[in-house]
Design a protein around this nucleic acid. Sequence first.
DNA 1: CTGTTAGCGCGTTCAG
DNA 2: CTGAACGCGCTAACAG
Lengths: 335, 335
Amino acid sequence: MNIRDVAKKAGVAPITVSRCINDSGYCSPEARIRIEAAISELGFVPNRLASGLRSKRTKTIALVVTDITNPFFTTIARAVEDTAGEAGYTVIFSNTDEDPLKEKKYIQMLLEQRVGGIILVPAQSTPDSASFIRQHETPIVILDRRIDNFKADFVRCDSEQGAYQLMSMLLSLGHRDIAILSGPVGVSTSEDRVAGCKRAISEAKAGNLNIQTFYGPFTQQSGYDMSIKVMAKHPRPTAIFAANNFIAIGALKALQAVNVRVPEDVAIVAFDDLPQALITFPFLTVASQPAYEMGKKAAEILLSKLSNENETGFQEIVLPAEIIIRQSSGSPVKP
Amino acid sequence: MNIRDVAKKAGVAPITVSRCINDSGYCSPEARIRIEAAISELGFVPNRLASGLRSKRTKTIALVVTDITNPFFTTIARAVEDTAGEAGYTVIFSNTDEDPLKEKKYIQMLLEQRVGGIILVPAQSTPDSASFIRQHETPIVILDRRIDNFKADFVRCDSEQGAYQLMSMLLSLGHRDIAILSGPVGVSTSEDRVAGCKRAISEAKAGNLNIQTFYGPFTQQSGYDMSIKVMAKHPRPTAIFAANNFIAIGALKALQAVNVRVPEDVAIVAFDDLPQALITFPFLTVASQPAYEMGKKAAEILLSKLSNENETGFQEIVLPAEIIIRQSSGSPVKP
DNA sequence: CTGTTAGCGCGTTCAG
DNA sequence: CTGAACGCGCTAACAG
């Protein structure tokens, strides 16, 4: 079953069917009616493989993230899918588990499928994967995390500023012994958040500051382990900055395990909010990232690259984090 | 750049390159070495569009779910991707938002792409979408929810039994006024869970039972709204059965809003657990579905259909729900 | 065990 | 504005 069968049935040439299906070129209204009738009568489904092979363009894009179980990325995935779906694109999601090897393998697969473009949350800040994509003339948008020495469209949240605000809050509440539970070294969001904290600290000019910084994966386990370690220290910190949602939850569980009250004994602030649909009692004071907008913006940029080939240079979109004050910081709650 | 270029460089025939890349047919070790050298030297990436067009098989499957923001489906997505990825398959995820029209649109797109097979969580129990897929000779595995009058491979959790156990627990704890906050009518998981409740109720043979059943979408908002309504009734229920995780969270928020304590004033049990990575203080007594195993099993069945064409009829895999007793039911917590 | 030939279904190109 | 011919890159079928 192909467009020739449809053409025969509708009494037109195959190419007319093609133009009708793809809205490329003119197709007379009466021909369109006969063609559509033939299509539904035959149950014809156009073959995008053949179409893509011939035209060297596919209506498929890919989103590569590092952890699909993190609601932050789930929300991004949804945004990308909504945006791309409206434009008639299919989205392939891939999950790298922060593993550069898995990332490389998936990118290879995506290029083999000739996806039209890729939105990449890089597992590491080296440009290998992104360069590989670009070598194959596939448009790319970098999302969430920076890649060193690589010029590209880039959508991210202002991690530095969000962390700065959270840390400033802790300092203004009088905390002097603070633990920073960061994400992994070599990931820009980790580093920006630590940098934001450091800026707040240096601007505070407070005396007797005791700031400890720990690095580990963006996981609950890591947050738990780092917190247990932290709580054994003397002097014990009176506040914790958690670099993402999973680390924060790990920290809360650890403090619960060692019978430390939040926020009475130790205050906690965190980067990344959790979706309200999943949380019964919102408790954490957070810098919330506009995940949906980030995904939407990334998809829009990619789609515009795919329609207009006019290269207008690269853009960097930086969206602000929103500070949401709740109980965990021990700070006065907004009315 | 194509396999002919590679073949020329390696001094073999194009078909030999093809056989080497796909491990189909024999390729001498020395040829393989020369071919691999040529591939990496040229930066060649095989074109799966052409391959799929010719061979009428693609290394791509699709997973269609109704709500990608629900961790239950996220976990399934991850399982499918892990399983398929190992076998060299790419997965396309689609999200229907419980909308049959969106479902139809996505399935059309997937068939156009000639995916090798589809794992479908149907938005409704009518066989339209599934029949459409089968008409196009694409293997299909139904996941989570039953489709009426349609024979197919089917992987699900035993909703009836899980609900039966939860409801039995409430009854044995002495509750007589119970509200069932169900999912939508016409979705088999909803109906099975209500049926399980009803079986427990009829077996209990308790007197003075006052059971009210409400139906609504599987969302937090619906859980909230139904709970507010329920709490205004006289006599007020002393226990709530929530048909999924989102409904349960909505119920908890509603009870909090009207100053009803859980479990002291009202006990709550729910279907679906929430991932531990997202929850600080696990509180809900639940029937937990083996989401990862469900996704894995569905993917395995689909992949086996794709490799062996030997039709051995259809299988229905029913995995048990696990009852996890926590505080919300007011029942004695397991040691 | 390897190579040759032909064609998958479509869209580009150029002619009518 | 519509149609005919060709070829995209690959592999099935068959030959050597």
